[in-house]
Design a protein around this nucleic acid. Structure first.
Lengths: 151, 151
DNA sequence: GGTGAAACGGCGGTCAG
DNA sequence: CTGACCGCCGTTTCACC
């Protein structure tokens, strides 16, 4: 779906603050409030905007341990299987299938190292998981668009 | 800041859909709308919730290639050096220093594989970088809690 | 894409447990 | 101190031009 410059400015405004009123955004980009809403609705329908969420400070919520876990799965495991299995863990912030030796990389937030160990054991115990390999995040250097945080 | 179970459920509801009305969330967690708002205001004031944003489909915005890049740096490189060096790249969505062999893991969004290759070459050419090792993201399985995408 | 009107939700004050 | 009820007002969201 082709976005024009107006759409990009609207998305940019919403990315900075999704609670800004349509009238306010309209004043910035040069449209009326209903016109902005129609574009946002169109972006939602097209899947360019997939939803609205909160930006959270993991540490402030008590999730002080972050880790990246490589998942090695059985050969007949589908991405959907992995998704289903991981979606039950509130500690899993994001997950993607990847090229290379591992099948998926999972971003996990936990209260502390002890909590992370428990989560890792449970994930490693999933029937589709054969092996895991994880690194702990020391300090988040940049968190521009990606990288979420738990709730 | 200590969050009780009610706060966590409210944050979780907002993470799933930040546009849900306070009354709606209140019905789910067993509170009235004003009570939910007061808790959200408190979470905002405490910095636990840092803002509201849109979840965007990177592909729809023209960023169809995502990669995770492990960075191996000179031994005297500080996290601040890495941060400074990477912050100049708009394609870098997030970066963290990590335990293990690599010094940092960087999440990169690019228009296509060709674009990614160019970005990777430039990052690999940074004076503090000795080696890189990257995997391409095949499909994003889970992208919770505002995790995301460029804008 | 702009305009006007109606419905909804946000948000303060106020009171009760 | 935390939650519930009730105003007013801004915002959303239509139908229509």
């Amino acid at each position: 779906m082709p976005l024009n410059e107006l759409d990009e400015r609207i998305v940019h405004a919403l990315a900075a603050d999704a609670r800004r009123s349509y009238a306010d955004i309209g004043a910035e980009v040069g449209l009326s409030a209903p016109a902005v809403k129609r574009r946002v609705d169109r972006l939602l329908a097209a899947g360019a905007i997939t939803g609205f969420t909160v930006r959270v400070d993991p540490a402030a919520l008590g999730w002080q341990t972050e880790a990246l876990v490589e998942l090695y799965c059985r050969h007949n495991t589908s991405p959907a299987d992995i998704r289903r299995g991981l979606s039950r863990y509130p500690e899993v912030a994001s997950a993607s299938t990847v090229t290379g030796e591992a099948d998926a990389v999972v971003q996990v937030f936990a209260a502390d190292v002890r909590h992370f160990e428990q989560v890792l054991e449970r994930i490693a115990g999933e029937p589709f998981v054969t092996r895991t390999k994880s690194v702990l995040v020391l300090s988040p250097l940049l968190r521009r668009y990606g990288a979420g945080s738990p709730g």
